[in-house]
């Protein structure tokens, strides 16, 4: 459960270096196809660069993202000492963007990881054991799906109270139904098949059958969906911040920065334009990568 979620996406890249010669490996084949997709590669590169930059933030800037310096407020782009200017409290924009990237990207990935974990768990158990648990679980999923996406998140925040953590929990819950449904569908279609029956007869444990033989068949759509979802979660989290329901100032988070900046749209547009562009870039790169992954995993869909 605790696997770093972004490993899932980075893995193929790492794996590629090691197994370049083995042509028969299906993973290898997918990687080969993905590598040929220049747009997807570009998306992946942007994402990796953003992650690396935000991780390296303390080495790239000497400013503290939260320390207020009222003497230097609202400096424009290209000011000496502040390449990207400062915000309304005199905080260095570059620094806040870098540190903000940590939180925003982490929220996106963590929320997706939580949604995936519970979605997969519910889907596997419901599909495999059927019966009462299945009915209960699917009713629960139906109830979640009875709310339009963001509204479900808002409803959850209404109960838990505003805040970054609560907003993240809320948007992860919104993501659960999709994964649960994919996985359950796959389990249902596979569980009666001969080779699964054969495994059972050989005395394989339920756990082994579920994770070794069934789950891998659902992985392609899950990975593609997860990649696209991370972008959606980042936008959703920033939307919550914009409504005052998510991360709260003075935290450096792109959504907070954007909504802080909206009050200075005329005086100092860069305060909201920069985090807006940062969100846009990351979501764009995730979409490019996700589209590429979809094509690579299932070449029949490629036009």
């Amino acid at each position: 459960m605790q696997t770093e979620p972004n490993v899932k996406i980075d893995q193929p890249e790492a794996a590629a270096e090691d197994f370049e010669v083995i042509q028969a490996d299906p993973k290898q084949e997918i990687w080969r196809r993905l590598k040929k997709d220049k747009i997807a590669v570009a998306g992946g590169c942007i994402l990796v660069v953003v992650i690396l930059l935000s991780l390296a933030a303390p080495y790239l800037t000497s400013y503290n993202p939260n320390v207020v310096n009222m003497a230097d407020r609202l400096l424009p782009l290209g000011s000496p000492g502040h390449i990207l200017g400062t915000d309304h409290l005199g905080r260095d924009m570059l620094t806040r963007l870098l540190y903000g990237g940590r939180i925003s990207v982490a929220i996106g990935f963590t929320a997706v990881a939580i949604a995936m974990f519970f979605g997969i768990l519910i889907g596997l158990l419901a599909g495999y054991y059927k019966g009462f648990f299945d009915i209960l679980a699917m009713r629960f999923i139906d109830i979640l799906m009875a709310f339009p996406y963001v509204l479900l998140a808002i409803a959850i925040i209404a109960a838990l109270g505003p805040g970054l953590l609560n907003a993240m929990i809320a948007i992860s819950i919104v993501g659960i139904p999709y994964y649960a449904r994919i996985v359950r569908g796959t389990v249902l279609s596979l569980r009666e098949q001969e080779y699964i029956e054969a495994q059972k007869a050989l005395g394989a444990s339920d756990l082994r059958i579920l994770f070794k033989h069934i789950l891998p068949n659902a992985l392609s759509p899950i990975i593609v969906a997860a990649t696209l979802d991370v972008g959606w979660m980042i936008i959703a989290a920033s939307g919550m911040s914009f409504l005052g329901l998510g991360a709260q100032p003075p935290m450096a988070e792109w959504g907070v920065m954007l909504s802080d900046g909206k009050d200075f749209l005329r005086v100092a547009p860069h305060i909201s334009l920069l985090p807006g562009m940062a969100i846009f870039m990351v979501v764009l790169s995730l979409n490019l990568l996700g589209d590429g992954l979809r094509d690579a995993l299932d070449p029949r869909l490629k036009q």
């Binding site: 339009p148 509204l151 939307g239 914009f242 005052g244």
Partner: peptide
């Protein structure tokens, strides 16, 4: 449909559109 209803909440706040989203968010706050 779900996306439009969701997005409407945010758009309503920005444009002061007297819809249910504005009502809901004000209610929560």
């Amino acid at each position: 449909i779900g996306f439009l209803l969701s997005g409407a909440v945010l758009v309503e706040i920005v444009f002061g559109w007297p819809g249910i989203g504005t009502l809901m968010v004000n209610g929560i706050l």
